[in-house]
């Protein structure tokens, strides 16, 4: 019973990753790829956790913690880069970045 459920979960997760990969490849915008890679990373954390349940060990917990803590860095860095490089940089308020820098 549980083995069947494990198998179902594994197949669904694999299908999900393939679909996300499709969006990652086709884009079309950088934002799409950013979102897709974000989903990939969260899926990776989920799969690491699921593997621990299936194999019945808890050794990968530090890996999950580190991934969960650092997952934000990539998307924030790229998001900032995109905003600076191509975007219209005016916000609705003046001096917004001065506040952030202080």
């Amino acid at each position: 019973m549980t083995t069947v459920l494990y198998l179902i979960a594994g197949v669904i997760a694999a299908a999900a990753v393939l679909i996300v990969l499709l969006r990652l490849i086709t884009g079309p915008t950088l934002i799409d790829r950013l979102i897709a890679s974000d989903v990939m990373l969260t899926t990776l954390i989920l799969v690491i956790g699921a593997e621990m349940v299936i194999s019945g060990h808890t050794r990968s917990i530090p890996l999950m913690v580190v991934l969960a803590a650092t997952a934000i860095l990539g998307s924030v860095a790229v998001a900032r880069f995109i905003t600076r490089a191509g975007g219209d940089q005016s916000g609705p308020i003046a001096g917004e970045d001065d506040d952030a820098r202080r």
């Binding site: 019973m1 549980t2 459920l5 494990y6 179902i8 979960a9 594994g10 669904i12 997760a13 299908a15 999900a16 990753v17 679909i19 996300v20 499709l22 969006r23 979102i35 897709a36 989903v39 969260t42 899926t43 989920l46 699921a50 349940v53 299936i54």
Partner: peptide
């Protein structure tokens, strides 16, 4: 075995949420 089955069912729900996220992404 009940606890294991509940854990496995939770994994399936999590996988379904991931699949929904992927489908929404497309």
């Amino acid at each position: 075995s009940i606890l294991d089955a509940v854990a496995a069912a939770l994994l399936v729900v999590a996988a379904l949420l991931t699949l929904a996220a992927a489908i929404g992404l497309v």
